[in-house]
């Protein structure tokens, strides 16, 4: 066991530098995904068939093809097509993650908006609110309470999916673990075990944060959730890491 702890101490700094990239990918990917979720989700409720159709096609396209393929496409093919070389493949990773999870998130937003009772929409019209006011003051706060749990699941999937960047050589947590193995095969056990635990801790923290946010959002609507239930992870039944 002594050996394990020596290698543990050796491997940790390198893994922590990998975590930085994993966090950057996850955080930036999540922000991009959230923006796109609302964009495509709102578009899918538009009255114009053109707008609705555009959002449908984009969402189905990014959900239908594998994230790995999209990643390869953004890293290797996009610079040739557009003649525009991103100076760091991390950006390509963020774009691929954001678009993919934005497409999944759009369905969450659509479902959340549809779950708000029709009377609430009518009330906002009766009160002569502008479209933006309707969403900001009445609809989104109610829809959000429904959307946070599935968003939480997507966020954890996004964290897990960020590890796919290993395949295009971006130095995230999994990549650093693999690099440690390549330099010194005896450290493989320590490196891969620590990387698994680190991923678990990150996922657990994200889950806890999202559950706290859910409790907050629901309490504001006068629907408090028992604390004990908020401490448990959201039931997730779709794997969707890609």
């Amino acid at each position: 066991m002594g050996d394990f702890f020596t290698t543990f101490a050796d491997a940790l700094p390198q893994l922590l530098s990998g975590i930085r990239i994993t966090l950057i990918l996850t955080a930036s990917g999540a922000v991009l995904a959230l923006v796109l979720s609302f964009l495509f989700g709102l578009m899918s409720r538009s009255r114009s068939i053109m707008v609705r159709g555009t959002s449908r096609v984009i969402v189905e396209f990014f959900r239908g093809t594998s994230l790995v393929v999209q990643l390869f496409w953004f890293v290797y093919a996009m610079p040739i097509v557009t003649g525009f070389q991103l100076d760091d493949p991390v950006y390509a990773g963020i774009i691929a993650l954001g678009l993919n999870y934005g497409a999944y998130g759009a369905e969450v937003v659509r479902g959340g908006l549809n779950a708000v009772p029709q009377a609430q929409w009518e009330a906002t019209i009766a009160l002569n609110m502008t479209p933006l006011q309707r969403l900001r003051l009445v609809i989104v706060p109610q829809a959000m309470a429904e959307m946070i749990p599935p968003f939480g699941n997507l966020l954890i999937q996004l964290l897990k999916a960020s590890s796919l960047v290993v395949l295009v050589g971006i130095a995230d947590l999994s990549f650093e673990a693999e690099k440690i193995r390549l330099t010194n095969a005896t450290e493989a056990t320590a490196a891969f075990s620590i990387s698994l635990v680190l991923y678990f801790v990150l996922a657990w923290l994200l889950n806890t944060g999202m559950r706290a946010w859910e409790g907050h959002a629901k309490a504001k609507l006068g629907r408090p959730v028992p604390r004990k239930r908020l401490l448990q992870p959201v039931r997730a039944d779709q794997g969707g890491a890609v």
Binding site: L164, F192, L196, F200, A203
Partner: peptide, 19 residues
């Protein structure tokens, strides 16, 4: 099961294959 759900398949793959 929760541990498996909260960790990425790639990390599990490396662990299974090399450890």
């Amino acid at each position: 099961l929760q541990f498996i759900r909260f960790t990425p398949p790639i990390a599990q793959l490396f662990f299974a294959y090399y450890v």
